[in-house]
Amino acid sequence: MDIDDILAEVSGDGSPPETRDLQELTRAWVTERSAPELLPWPSDLMDRVLGRIHQQIEVVEEQVGNVDPKTNFRLIIIQTELERFKYLVRSFLRTRMAKIDQYTLYMLSNPTQTARLSACELQYANSHQTLLEAHYRSSFLSQFPTSLQRLDDTAGGISMIEQPDPDAAVFVRALRNIEEPVVIEGTDTDFQMRRGDVYVVRWSAVQEHVLSGDAELI
């Protein structure tokens, strides 16, 4: 063990904050792409990442037009990486948007779900829903009997509000040893998850571990 290892152990894994943010963003993206429901908006992380992307674009704009071949190649690398970052952010946002589109009413009617949206996403969800309702009303709903005009009817045991399936199967990997056995509700099954273990299991059984950062979806 040399001095670098010791330093690395003292200060987390020794990687600079930018690298840690890239790891966090990548994990958030993969987890969001795999999870059946919308996950909380990582506002601090996104503020930092978007701020840096903004700065990097300014750097590129300043240096573009420089004819020195050396600077030119550096610029190519910086721009390639910039595009990769933008793709990551864009795919993350679009994944969230797809879930918001699908479960708008459920999210707007449930305070814990609403709290997971960013300010922009909340605004989007509200205006999207208002537009949709206005359109339905003007095109056909107004001609229905009043009792059939609601879009959020839950009478008769069947809810019109579409919800994500909390029991959908997900691929999960433990990031830390989870001390308590993971219990699958409704069955007499429980199992231990050690760091690095990969399981296929229903989302509801591991949701809290994923939200607390002890596990990630893959």
Partner: peptide, 26 residues
């Protein structure tokens, strides 16, 4: 209803098997 342990599975294998394995488990 049970969990399935898949230690050692590769990323591309997860991607290819997800629809089928997830579908069967569901």
């Amino acid at each position: 209803g049970r969990e399935v342990k898949m230690n050692g599975v590769g990323a591309m294998e997860v991607s290819e098997g997800r629809a089928f394995i997830g579908g069967v488990v569901d």
